[in-house]
Design a protein around this nucleic acid. Structure first.
Lengths: 135, 135
DNA sequence: ACTAATGGTTATAGTAACTATAAGGTCAAT
DNA sequence: ATTGACCTTATAGTTACTATAACCATTAGT
């Protein structure tokens, strides 16, 4: 009983990752080279499906493709300590928090700018003034 | 009395934007072509200094270089309404908020993941498990 | 059986905003 | 005169895709 196979389009529909992107992941070695049908179509199986979902979830947490490559290779070593995984998560958390800090500062500044506009002409525009000058 | 001029390196030190980046901005037309010394060095004046600071401040608020190009061209039309500027700020604010929302969700998920690691081996790792499976 | 629509294949170039590298010319100081 | 710091250009690399072109395979409809 041979396992049911997907085409790249099916896999794409099932995972929410587009065919081009799936091929791209294969090209950069994030996914193993797919087996092919007689006519040359890529064929995917359950394991590919799982791997791709793992990638998508990790992307959703902001991990880079390089990070994910490492995570996947860690995940494959069943018997080893998961400390490396934990470390990666911590690092990612720090990065996200640092980015959050930056964005919150931007939000605050943009709110201030937005509030100070009184709808005149450029010459009197406080926004332009602020961007242009003063410390 | 001719105005005092800077080299690209001096301008870089004064604005916190690297020489390569300044040249890059010139190349893409964000800065006007610099005048040159006899030997071919770029020479900058007060106006360039201001313009570059405007760019840096706008970058600091997360505006894209294309946005900044528009902002600069708006800023040059002293007599026109500043509505366009205000709109750009609003749009940028929305973008920042949307990005904040995404990042906060990531932060939350990463915190959960991080908390659930108990330091065993990969096989039992709840992090890997979470990334791998379940809805 | 023929045809059109859909979906698969490859390779190449473009995106944003730089960064890195190479190979060379200039300038101020020793 | 030579060192070192700084300037010049052009080209390629980065991240994670997206867009385009040109072509082959499969499937649904007539």
């Amino acid at each position: 009983m041979s396992e049911k196979s997907y085409t790249v389009g099916r896999l794409a529909d099932d995972t929410g990752i587009k065919p081009v992107t799936i091929r791209y992941y294969e090209k950069i070695g994030l996914l193993p080279k797919a087996t092919r049908s007689e006519s040359g179509y890529r064929l995917y199986f359950e394991a590919d499906h799982s791997r791709l979902l793992f990638i998508r979830r990790s992307r959703g947490l902001g991990f880079s493709l390089d990070d994910i490559r490492e995570l996947l290779s860690l995940a494959d070593r069943q018997q080893e300590s998961c400390a490396g995984v934990d470390t990666k998560v911590e690092q990612q958390l720090e990065q996200v928090r640092s980015r959050l800090k930056d964005l919150r500062a931007m939000e605050y500044e943009l709110e201030r700018l937005s509030a100070c506009c009184e709808g005149g002409v450029i010459m009197d525009c406080r926004i332009i003034e602020t961007l242009s000058g003063e410390a």
